[in-house]
């Protein structure tokens, strides 16, 4: 096909949007809503996931050293800890802090502390956070193997619980996303079908004058692609605005942050490019395919 032919078909696609603006607008709206539905479900899931990971990062390994060790030994052990796999941060807990922690963790029978004199009996300790919470048991075990360590403990229940939570959330989120995607597909397909149906006469006439299917479909493809592209762009800007607003509100509440690990919400800036690309590509692709597929049944004349 000549360049002028290609240009003609592309132009037809653009013109058709204008000529059929009502239907194009309907397609645009349906695509926009579909993208927003699926997009926000995906973003919601990603943030849930990140929050659960964040909660996991609050899970620590409490390491208590052998009380007979010298300060040098303790210091060198701290260095060793820092180089271990999966160790994120190592925080020294002095005898005094350890004592206070213990005190605050015991809610009942606080009177017992009246009988304890000083905190010298407390061992030196470290509070270790890990990179991957799923591996926390392993890391704890490795630390425990060191003869200098009296005890290292983490809460395997927390790790286990968070793992399970993530599985459940992933499962539910996938189901919701798939359901939304199916609903969207149905909505989009009905809209593009209606849009093409309104022009079946035109398609039939084109077939009569000897147009090939590809020739008839190309403008529909271009048309759907452009409509989808704009729907994607629209969805992006709406998502951006809403996401930032919600993010700000949630992260402003310091207390919520600590309680639910909201501090680990994903800032939009780090998602912007991906969200934009995903929306625009998905919009253009779905728009183009939906419109082309809908022409099929009318081409058989």
């Amino acid at each position: 096909m000549k360049l002028s032919g290609v240009k003609y078909l592309a132009n037809q696609g653009v013109e058709n949007i204008w000529k059929n603006k009502m239907m194009a607008f309907a397609t645009f709206c349906v695509l926009l809503i579909s993208l927003l539905l699926v997009g926000s479900a995906v973003l919601f899931y990603m943030n849930m996931n990140s929050m659960i990971m964040g909660l996991g990062n609050q899970n620590e390994i409490a390491v208590y050293m052998d009380p007979s060790l010298s300060q040098e030994d303790v210091d060198s052990f701290a260095e060793k800890l820092k180089t271990m796999d999966n160790v994120d941060s190592v925080e020294y807990v002095s005898k005094e802090e350890a004592y206070q922690r213990m005190q605050s963790q015991i809610s009942e029978g606080k009177a017992i502390f009246d009988y304890i004199d000083g905190y010298d009996f407390m061992p030196d300790g470290f509070s270790v956070t890990v990179i991957n919470n799923d591996q926390i048991e392993n890391t704890t075990m490795l630390i425990n193997q060191d003869p200098m360590v009296r005890s290292a403990s983490s809460s395997p229940q927390v790790a286990e619980f968070l793992r399970e939570l993530r599985k459940v959330v992933t499962l539910i989120a996938s189901a919701i996303i798939i359901a939304l995607a199916i609903v969207s597909m149905i909505m989009i397909s009905n809209t593009t079908k209606a849009s093409v149906f309104a022009r079946r006469e035109e398609i039939m006439i084109m077939k009569y004058v000897g147009a090939t299917n590809a020739f008839i479909r190309t403008p529909f493809f271009v048309e759907g692609m452009i409509t989808g592209f704009f729907a994607g762009a629209g969805a992006f800007f709406i998502t951006w605005a809403v996401y930032r607003a919600v993010y700000r509100i949630l992260t402003e509440q310091g207390m919520l942050m600590r309680a639910f690990g909201i501090g680990s919400l994903i800032p939009f800036a780090s998602l912007r490019l991906y969200v934009a690309l995903a929306y625009v590509i998905a919009g253009a692709l779905i728009g183009a395919l939906g419109s082309v597929i809908s022409t099929r049944r009318h081409l058989d004349v």
Binding site: M1, K2, S4, G5, Y8, M206, V209, G210, A211, T212, F215
Partner: peptide, 11 residues
């Protein structure tokens, strides 16, 4: 003109 465009006639 459409009939001629279909056969990719020169502009």
């Amino acid at each position: 003109a459409f009939v001629l465009r279909v056969i990719d006639a020169p502009l």
